[in-house]
Each structure stands twice: as structure tokens, then as C-alpha cells.
């Protein structure tokens, strides 16, 4: 039933995404590319943090690691010929798996932390990663920039778009799976979840690692838009702050609400925020405060509530008749 309802929308969106390079100009395509990137990041963030309510402010660590791994591999294989040249998808998948492993290790030890302490730990992780990579590239390798072979716009667009769709599919499957259910139970009430036989620490760790894997995958694909990269680019704190902000903007209610939040914010930022940035960001700040105040379930939750109220009213009216 549900599948049928959204199938036409899905087909239109997919067609739009895949055919966009044929009718969109360069700028709009760039915005769409960025939007897809943010949407994928936000969905990955939501899968762990949104479901379990363990807020991670460390997406930048995984994003940057994925980006840097891919960049270094590309540089070593194409420019320096130290490594065998592999097709990009394989490198990106390797980046994702690397992140999976790292996040597994980090999750095992850090997920004992509760609430805000977990947020601070992950935030510190992002900053520490930047410091460590900065140390590696400037003090050990002595070459600050990592060079990446240039890709043209269409290639980068399709790389990021396909990666985003793959991430959506992975996250959606996981979201509907037992793992997603267990994570949501942990988010509702961790003690009760344990009582029902959920292995909480294992579930959390795997969820965290899968989320980090998707973030790293996107980071790897994001490498294609650059020709050079540096730690300050790869581990920029905005990759830590934007996904939670976008997810909460859209609302942490279902699978698609964070994606809608990401799309709205990214599009607003790119079309309104290029000439009057200060004004735009001031207004955006006020809007975010208002949403946090009056719409605890974000924009999507708010719209749903209104729709529900309207249908209830019409139902009541029809009953009266």
C-alpha cells in the first residue's frame, strides 16, 4: 500500500536525479550534487544518532577519513605510481570499509558514554582527527597538499548521486531491518530494550559503524570534486555540525524526514545565501530556534500533525453528517 503510494514520487525523483545533467546548468547541478551529499550524510547520521538518541557530533572524522583515504590512494596510484591503479568505486568502497573498521573500534570503547558525553567525545574525535592528519601530512610527509586527478562535472555528479542513492538504499534497508528496530528501541528506552533481549552494546556499535561506513563512503566520493585536498578541507567542522542540524530541521520522525530537512536547508543556503549571507544566516538562526521551540518533531513532524488534524476534522464532519 505504502510502496504504491510513493512509487510515482520515487520514479519522478529518480528520473530527475539521473537526467539532471541534461537540463540543469552547471550551478544548479552543483547545488544538486551538494544537496545529495548532505542528504546522504544526514540520512547516515540519522540512522545511528536519530534512532538511538546518541548524538554524534563527529561525522567530520569519518567523512574526512574517507575523503583522505581516497585522495591519498588516488595520488599514490595515479601521480606517484606507488600503488596499483584501481577503479574509483573500489577505492571508495575500501574507504567505507576502513571507516567501518575504525568506527567499530571507536564505538566499542566510546559507546559506553551516555548523552552529552558521547556528543563531546565524538566532537573531540573530529577535531583530533584533523590534528592527527595535519601532523601526518605536514610533519611526516612534508607535503601539505594531496593532489587528486581532476574529474569533470558530470562524472563527479554521477559519482555522488549514485553513492547517495546506494546510501539511501542501505540506510532504508537497515532502517526497516531488525537492527534498525533494535536501535529505535534503544533510543526509546535503553534499559527496556536490554530487558527485551537486545544486546545493546553490540547493536549500538554495529549501528555506529554502519553509519560511519556510509559517511565515509560519501566522503570518498566527495573527493572527486577537488583537485587538491588538505586537512582543513576534509575535516571541516561543518561536516560535524550540518548533519545533526539538517536532521533536526527536518525532524527525527521517519526515514525520509532528515533527508527533507537536508534538502530544504541546502537549497535555501545555496539560493538565498550567496549575496546577503549575514541576513540570511540571521534569519535562518531565528527559524531554527523557532522550530526547536514549537516543532519538536521538525518540519515533517509539524506538517504531519497538521495533516492529521485536518483529516480528523473532516472525518468528524463526515460523521456528523
Amino acid at each position: 500500500m505504502r510502496m504504491m503510494n510513493i512509487l510515482p514520487i520515487l520514479v519522478i525523483v529518480l528520473a530527475f536525479i539521473f537526467l539532471a545533467p541534461f537540463f540543469l546548468d552547471v550551478y544548479n547541478l552543483g547545488v544538486l550534487r551538494e544537496t545529495l551529499m548532505w542528504a546522504a550524510l544526514t540520512a547516515s547520521w540519522f540512522f545511528f544518532s536519530g534512532l538511538t538518541k546518541y548524538i554524534s557530533l563527529g561525522s567530520a572524522a569519518f567523512f574526512g577519513t574517507g575523503l583522505y583515504f581516497t585522495a591519498l590512494y588516488l595520488e599514490q596510484s595515479i601521480f606517484l605510481k606507488n600503488l596499483p591503479a584501481l577503479p574509483l568505486p573500489i577505492i571508495v568502497v575500501m574507504a567505507g570499509l576502513l571507516n567501518f573498521a575504525i568506527a567499530l573500534a571507536i564505538g566499542l570503547i566510546s559507546l559506553r558514554l551516555k548523552g552529552i558525553y558521547f556528543a563531546i567525545a565524538t566532537l573531540a574525535l573530529g577535531i583530533a582527527c584533523q590534528g592527527v592528519f595535519n601532523y601526518i601530512v605536514s610533519d611526516i610527509m612534508k607535503t601539505y597538499y594531496t593532489h587528486i586527478p581532476p574529474f569533470d562535472l558530470q562524472t563527479t555528479y554521477y559519482t555522488i548521486a549514485i553513492a547517495a542513492l546506494v546510501i539511501f538504499i542501505i540506510i532504508y534497508t537497515l532502517y526497516r531491518s531488525n537492527l534498525g528496530f533494535a536501535l529505535r528501541m534503544i533510543g526509546e528506552n535503553e534499559d527496556a530494550a536490554i530487558h527485551f533481549g537486545v544486546n545493546a552494546s553490540l547493536t549500538k556499535t554495529i549501528g555506529f559503524a554502519l553509519s560511519a561506513m556510509c559517511i565515509g563512503l560519501m566522503g570518498g566520493c566527495y573527493t572527486t570534486i577537488f583537485t587538491v585536498t588538505a586537512p582543513t578541507i576534509a575535516f571541516n567542522l561543518q561536516f560535524s555540525f550540518m548533519p545533526p542540524m539538517m536532521a533536526m530541521f527536518g525532524g527525527l520522525v521517519t526515514f525520509y524526514s532528515p533527508i527533507i530537512g537536508a534538502v530544504i536547508l541546502s537549497v535555501l543556503r545555496n539560493y538565498l545565501g550567496i549575496t546577503f549571507v549575514h541576513h540570511f544566516l540571521i534569519v535562518l538562526g531565528i527559524i531554527i530556534v523557532i522550530i526547536a521551540e514549537f516543532m519538536p518533531e521538525g518540519i515533517v513532524g509539524f506538517v504531519r500533525k497538521i495533516v492529521r488534524k485536518l483529516t480528523m476534522r473532516s472525518l468528524k464532519e463526515s460523521e456528523k453528517r
Partner: peptide
């Protein structure tokens, strides 16, 4: 024509390409 990239390198790249092509 002046655009603000908010110190975001991706935004700078797309805006530069917009200036050139659009």
C-alpha cells in the same frame, strides 16, 4: 558580480563555475 562562499570550498567551486558558465 560578487558571490559569498561562506568559506566553504565546495560552494566556492560551484559559484566559480556558475560565474563562468551561467
Amino acid at each position: 558580480i560578487e558571490y559569498d562562499d561562506e568559506t566553504d570550498i565546495h560552494k566556492m567551486l560551484t559559484l566559480t563555475e556558475k560565474l563562468i558558465t551561467v
